[in-house]
Design a protein around this nucleic acid. Structure first.
Lengths: 145, 145
DNA sequence: GTAATAGTTCAAGTGAACTTGAAGTCAAGA
DNA sequence: TCTTGACTTCAAGTTCACTTGAACTATTAC
């Protein structure tokens, strides 16, 4: 078995070793066995780190990830608790999806618009360019939530 | 015309007056006219605030928003600069979209799985539940980027 | 008149997520 | 042997995005 040093893990995950130690201190990563006092990781820690990074970009805090990943020592209702959080987070992710789609259209049309800044484009894409929604009539503002 | 006080704007936007002053200090919002020393806002400031809030949730920093919204005093190449940033951000938003879709599926299946925590589910959804990708065969790990 | 409410500025404080620095250990290579 | 590089711990520092506190002004209600 090829165990990885913290430096190797950090390089492959695209983060710093200090971040990995920080995650361990928060119990986001398990304590791993040592060789001469140095941490040695199984390669599957990269999956865990990839999950953490994606979840963070989607707005999950490290505290939430800690609960979600079930490292908390609170045994009572742990199962129900992470599922409560997960379903709340699912709703947030779904909202984020629609927001990202709207922003995608806005940026896409703003780029084809030739405006001096996005502030102008916020009006411009509705008034002068192709409509951002399915209905392009009227002086409708871009509202995203 | 019905101008709004900072408190009214804050309430309608769901933020604190202090955040609005902070945005103004960063030139994310324009300086507005005063009555007796107090800021008075046109209602369309709510659109700008809505845009800021959504963009933030999508991972835009306030510094980036400042550039995007074109409030910077750097006249030279301002137009090309915001478009460079916008196209970079468009790519990021599109990556976020696929990540959010993957996370949506993961959470959705994790919730139907009955696992004790999401950490277990990260393996479980692939091994025991319906496949998360189009191909469900094999011991394929969930990797999101 | 006075109390409550909402606004003002400016400086300092806060929480999250790390990073950096100091001081030390360990193994490999010249 | 000695230097280099990567690791260790722990405390303190940094950045971002605000918030809070102090001291003040202005309007409205009683």
């Amino acid at each position: 078995m090829t165990l990885l040093t913290i430096g190797q893990v950090a390089q492959r995950a695209g983060i710093r070793p200090s971040a990995i130690r920080y995650y361990e201190s928060l119990s986001l990563l398990p304590k791993v066995p040592r060789q001469n006092g140095q941490r040695r990781y199984q390669p599957d820690v990269l999956d865990r780190l990839a999950f953490i990074q994606v979840a963070q970009q989607l707005g999950f805090s490290l505290k939430e990830l800690h609960q979600l990943l079930g490292n908390a020592a609170e045994e009572s209702q742990l199962a129900t608790r992470w599922q409560t959080l997960a379903s709340r987070k699912l709703a947030e992710v779904e909202l984020l999806l629609t927001q990202a789609q709207t922003m995608q259209q806005l940026l896409h049309q703003g780029l084809r618009c030739g405006c001096a800044d996005l502030s102008t484009c916020l009006d411009c894409v509705v008034a002068n360019c192709q409509p951002i929604g399915e209905k392009g009539a009227g002086r409708k503002r871009v509202r995203m939530h």
